[in-house]
Simulated scan of single mutants.
Amino acid sequence: MAKLTITPRRWDELTALLEDEERLRNEHPKVAEYLDMSARLPGTGDDQVDADFDLRLVHYMTGGSVASANPYWDIVEPFVNAHDGRRVVNGGCVDGSARLAYAQMLLQAVYAYAIPAPQTIEWVADFCAGSTIVELGAGRGYWAAQLARSGLEVRAYDSEPPDRTNNASFPEAAGQSSVWHPIEDVTEFATCFQSADHVLFLCWPPGWGNAMSSEALSSFEAVGGERLIYVGEPKGGRTGNDAFFDALSARWRLGCVDRQFVSWWRDADVAQGWIRK
């Protein structure tokens, strides 16, 4: 497990924060909520692993950009393990734990549903080869921010930008960023494609029959789009609708898959690069 290095000054800051319960609840209510709940839930069975995870979560979620430019990854990275040919966050326990499951829900709401491991960001950059990325359903723009930091140009859109509307998937809370990258309203998405060289990026598009993914793909195809990055579950899962997967099967071919992609152990998401036939 990668060692977490914390300066004496940062230790003092964390100690003062954790010893002042009222301040913690006011400044970082989601962290306080996690600490309250996690103490009541079964862990991985290894107390040291659970304590290390809690420390990382508290440190990076309360440390802001000074602590990390990719806090989501820095929280979960030491708890990634290989299982059935995949890289998953399970804390070394095949079945994970109730505490990790609770942390997953919290971290997905604060950052993003999929985990942007540095290797995956590099994989996306290679696939895009310098082309502009257009992301629909960007949420807080966490992936967009990581991709932009790698040098890519990213335009991000969402039907409910969390910094301007009430987004049930990404609720507002003190002590956390509303957005990590500028998010434009989805009404601008229809006119955003200026070139077929753009790459469409769909990360955990809504499933359960929601037409967003198939409509976005149709708009992209209409302007001659040729490359798509899809991060989500296979057909029949919780992301994308049947029409989206049918269109991929009929008019696209799978160009590459990120073998280093990291998922939560309970999820079946993958990172795929698709090319127009």
Rank of each mutant, 00 (worst) to 15 (best):
residue 60 Y to Q: 11
residue 61 M to K: 13
residue 62 T to N: 07
residue 63 G to E: 02
residue 63 G to M: 08
residue 64 G to T: 00
residue 67 A to V: 10
residue 68 S to T: 02
residue 70 N to Y: 00
residue 70 N to R: 00
residue 70 N to S: 01
residue 70 N to Q: 00
residue 71 P to L: 02
residue 71 P to N: 02
residue 73 W to I: 00
residue 73 W to K: 01
residue 75 I to D: 12
residue 75 I to G: 08
residue 76 V to E: 00
residue 78 P to R: 05
residue 81 N to E: 09
residue 82 A to M: 15
residue 83 H to F: 09
residue 83 H to W: 06
residue 84 D to I: 05
residue 85 G to E: 05
residue 85 G to L: 10
residue 86 R to E: 05
residue 87 R to S: 13
residue 87 R to F: 14
residue 88 V to E: 11
residue 89 V to K: 03
residue 89 V to A: 06
residue 89 V to W: 02
residue 90 N to T: 04
residue 91 G to M: 06
residue 91 G to R: 05
residue 92 G to Q: 11
residue 93 C to H: 14
residue 94 V to A: 14
residue 94 V to H: 10
residue 95 D to I: 02
residue 96 G to Y: 04
residue 97 S to N: 04
residue 98 A to E: 10
residue 98 A to L: 09
residue 99 R to G: 01
residue 99 R to T: 01
residue 100 L to T: 13
residue 101 A to C: 06
residue 102 Y to L: 12
residue 103 A to S: 09
residue 104 Q to R: 13
residue 105 M to S: 14
residue 105 M to P: 10
residue 105 M to Q: 12
residue 106 L to D: 03
residue 106 L to Y: 13
residue 106 L to I: 12
residue 108 Q to D: 14
residue 109 A to I: 07
residue 109 A to N: 15
residue 112 A to Y: 14
residue 112 A to H: 13
residue 113 Y to S: 04
residue 113 Y to T: 14
residue 113 Y to W: 06
residue 114 A to H: 04
residue 115 I to L: 14
residue 116 P to C: 06
residue 117 A to S: 05
residue 117 A to D: 11
residue 117 A to N: 11
residue 118 P to C: 01
residue 119 Q to R: 09
residue 119 Q to C: 02
residue 121 I to A: 15
residue 122 E to L: 09
residue 122 E to F: 05
residue 122 E to S: 13
residue 124 V to T: 14
residue 125 A to V: 05
residue 126 D to E: 13
residue 126 D to Q: 11
residue 127 F to G: 15
residue 127 F to D: 10
residue 129 A to Y: 11
residue 129 A to G: 10
residue 129 A to S: 06
residue 130 G to S: 13
residue 130 G to R: 09
residue 131 S to T: 15
residue 131 S to D: 11
residue 131 S to A: 14
residue 132 T to W: 05
